[in-house]
C-alpha cells in the first residue's frame, strides 16, 4: 500500500514566518493608518493563499459582533480626550476612546486574517514546519492537536444550542440572567465531552506507540522553493517598510 501525501505549494515555515511578522506588527503599531496598511497586507496574503473570506466572515459573524460590543464598551470607559458624545454630563465617547476602539478592531482583524493563513496547511505539514523551526516535537504536536480541536469544539457548541432550542427554549426571549445561567449549564457538557474526546485521543496515541523511538521520520520532507524565498523576501520588505515609516 502506498501513502500519497499531497505536496503543498508553499512551505509551512513560510506561512508561520508571515503570520509571525504580521501579528508582531499588529502588536507593535498604535496608529490607525499603519494598522490599516498591515491589515491590507494580511488580507492580501490571506487571499493569495486562497482563503475564502466570504465563508470566514459568515463563520466569524458572532465573533465580529462580540468584538464590536467590546469596542463600544472600551470606548465608553475611556475618558481621555475630547468629548464626542455625552448624556447628562456623563461622557459616553471621546475621540481617544474612538481611536482606541478602531485600533482594537483593526488589530483583531489582522490577527484573525493572518492566522487563517495557517489553516491552509494540513496539521501534518504544519507539524513538519514547526519541527523544522526547532520546536520540540511534543510541543509542536500539542499545537497541531489543539488546532484540530477548535472545529470540534465549535461544532459541539453549535449542536448544544440547537439541542436546547429544539427542546422549546427560545434563547432570544430569555432575560440576561437566565441566558447566562443557560450558557453556564450548557457549556459544562461541551467541556466534559471535549475532555473525554482528548482522553480517548491520548489513549489511542499511547496505544500506537507515541514517542517510542527518539528520532521520528516523515515521508514528507520540506524543501524551500524559489516561490518560498520570494514570499519571505516580500514579507520582510513590507514589514521593514512599515516599521521604518512608523518609527521614523
Amino acid at each position: 500500500m502506498s501513502i500519497v501525501l499531497k505536496k503543498e505549494n508553499i512551505d509551512p515555515r513560510v506561512k508561520i514566518f508571515i503570520v509571525m511578522c504580521i501579528s508582531t506588527l499588529a502588536i507593535l503599531i498604535n496608529d490607525i493608518k499603519f494598522l490599516s496598511y498591515v491589515l491590507s497586507i494580511s488580507i492580501l496574503f490571506t487571499v493569495g493563499f486562497k482563503v475564502n473570506l466570504y465563508i470566514v466572515i459568515k463563520k466569524f459573524k458572532r465573533l465580529f459582533q462580540m468584538i464590536f460590543v467590546i469596542v463600544i464598551i472600551q470606548s465608553i470607559f475611556n475618558s481621555e480626550g475630547a468629548i464626542l458624545i455625552s448624556v447628562f454630563k456623563i461622557t459616553l465617547l471621546t475621540d481617544i476612546g474612538l481611536i482606541k476602539g478602531i485600533e482594537y478592531i483593526l488589530r483583531m482583524l489582522i490577527i484573525i486574517s493572518s492566522a487563517l493563513i495557517l489553516s491552509t496547511s494540513s496539521s501534518v505539514v504544519l507539524l513538519q514546519g514547526l519541527l523544522k523551526c526547532k520546536i520540540p516535537y511534543e510541543l509542536a504536536f500539542m499545537v497541531c492537536i489543539g488546532l484540530r480541536f477548535i472545529p470540534i469544539l465549535s461544532e459541539e457548541i453549535k449542536d448544544t444550542f440547537i439541542a436546547i432550542q429544539i427542546r422549546g427554549i427560545d434563547i432570544r426571549k430569555l432575560k440576561l440572567k437566565k441566558k447566562l445561567e443557560l450558557v453556564s449549564i450548557t457549556l459544562m457538557p461541551v467541556v466534559i465531552s471535549t475532555i473525554d474526546k482528548s482522553k480517548k485521543l491520548s489513549a489511542s496515541i499511547e496505544a500506537r506507540g507515541f514517542r517510542k523511538y527518539l528520532t521520528r521520520t516523515s515521508i514528507y520532507e520540506l524543501k524551500f522553493s524559489l516561490k518560498d524565498f520570494i514570499l519571505i523576501f516580500s514579507i520582510i520588505v513590507l514589514s521593514s517598510l512599515i516599521v521604518f515609516s512608523y518609527f521614523k
Binding site: I162, Q165, I166, R167, G168, I169, I171
Partner: peptide, 11 residues
C-alpha cells in the same frame, strides 16, 4: 424559530 418547531416536533 427552532424553539417553535421544538414545541411541535420532538427530536
Amino acid at each position: 424559530n427552532l424553539s417553535e418547531v421544538g414545541n411541535i416536533i420532538g427530536y
